[in-house]
Design a protein around this nucleic acid. Structure first.
Lengths: 253, 253
DNA sequence: CCAAAAGTGTTGCCTTTACACCCATGT
DNA sequence: ACATGGGTGTAAAGGCAACACTTTTGG
């Protein structure tokens, strides 16, 4: 019996010593690259099917801590911006019923009913090194418009996460957490357009964004691209935090 | 041993045959009466402390169904408007640790760690007959401004529910679910003012509200009060649903 | 007849939207 | 030189807030 089989067997039989039964968490991790909103997905070893990264809650660990642990394991990042958005508690959602039969443990805590706490998270794409967990063999970014068919209700989890992200766009520092340190105004605009699924007027967008008084224009421009070189901006952290406290409204649409 | 003690003993020892362990739900039930926003609270038999109505999730029951069951038991109403708003998963929140010692069952599923799914619900005050559950001896409305000290983290649950309600005020049919069939414009205004915690201009409020085109003015006026008799209104269900689908915005503030 | 509440309409301001011209860069 | 994208300003429209006068009712 290989090391993987051994580990899996122990996890299936005794995982509930460390973890709370019936409760899991799932994280929809958003990144932004090539003017596209992306989601990080895992491919399971045995089945080849894709899922959102998730995990279980240690017996003495808060839910947020569980989510942060999962996020760190999959992305290598700590201090990730994350938000709980919904609990999925359909009695028919069952984790691993099919997937673990092969092992021959007919009875495992993991085959019971699970409710899962959904989180969405924002990461800076370039800083992430996607890492599969021990149950999966791939961890990869997917364009949010081209998500494959996922296990259980994970497609619906991604959809709901995207809705939650849209609603948060007005009062959460979404741009701040998705973009690299410096970025151009058109890039910021694509970000908003991709998340909202609409196109916005270039000039009005810039006006509104600058009026928030949270951006700082850098002396350099972004070179290398074709056409006129756009200015580079970064978020002015002090102004940003002051504005967030006062209740910033990024209101578009 | 009395019937209550017997029931309690069985519940503590074997409740997890019917219910999922580690998971509970709590419902913050809002009503509106005497121009005040109210919350329905329970007083526990043994301790005399107050809490939000809650319950557990049956093994084959969805979370929403659990919440609806609790709401029906406490208010007598079915088809209640409710929304999940947050999960409270601090490892230190413990249900009933103190309260059940007296019974002498040193080990019960109920003394384990619990995570709880928070729901807020809107009911029409006059239709509710508050009913205590078998663990409590009072079930009573409290003014939202004068909530007493509650068990565990229930004060924070109420606060968060109120915040969630405020945020929903713009796109959820809050007035529709809190007010009786017919109501006056000033009453509707008090509702908004109480929830938002601000005062609004009478004339602009009426204009904005009527512009939504979801209200129907009735031929009668509300008589009996002092001063000029205000008109009665009701929500026009068809218009209302059409407007909700299109994404109604009750935007105030 | 007076105080207190309700019904209604107008004005000015400010935010949002629509739109046009010039500039820079790679092909 | 030209196509493409980026930077900026202005004018019209629409929404929102401020505000005053009249009407009704109970005491």
């Amino acid at each position: 019996m290989g090391s993987y089989e051994k580990k899996l067997r122990e996890f299936l039989l005794q995982g509930d010593r460390n973890f709370l039964p019936h409760i899991s968490i799932d994280c929809v991790i958003f990144g932004f690259h090539d003017n596209q909103l992306k989601v990080l997905l895992l491919k399971w070893k045995d089945q080849g099917s894709w899922s959102v990264p998730g995990g279980f809650v240690k017996r003495k660990e808060s839910l947020d801590a569980s989510a942060k642990r999962v996020l760190k394991e999959r992305t290598g990042l700590k201090d990730i911006f994350l938000r709980q958005f919904q609990v999925f508690g359909d009695p028919h959602r069952e984790r691993g019923k099919k997937s673990f039969k092969i092992i021959g443990t007919s009875k495992s805590w993991i085959m019971d009913r699970f409710i899962t706490v959904g989180y969405w998270a924002l990461v800076e794409f370039s800083k992430v090194t996607p890492r599969p967990d021990w149950l999966s063999d791939e961890c990869q970014w997917w364009d949010v418009q081209q998500i494959p068919s996922l296990i259980y209700d994970h497609n619906s989890i991604v959809t709901k996460a995207l809705e939650a992200l849209r609603l948060s766009l007005n009062d959460q520092p979404v741009g701040y957490n998705l973009l690299p340190q410096t970025f151009t105004m058109p890039e910021l605009q694509r970000l908003y357009e991709t998340i909202l699924g609409v196109s916005l007027d270039r000039r009005n967008f810039q006006k509104k964004m600058l009026a928030l008084d949270v951006l700082e224009r850098l002396p350099e421009r972004k070179t290398g691209g074709a056409h006129k070189a756009p200015f580079l901006y970064k978020f002015d952290k002090k102004k940003y935090e002051r504005a967030m406290q006062k209740g910033l409204s990024f209101g578009f649409q």
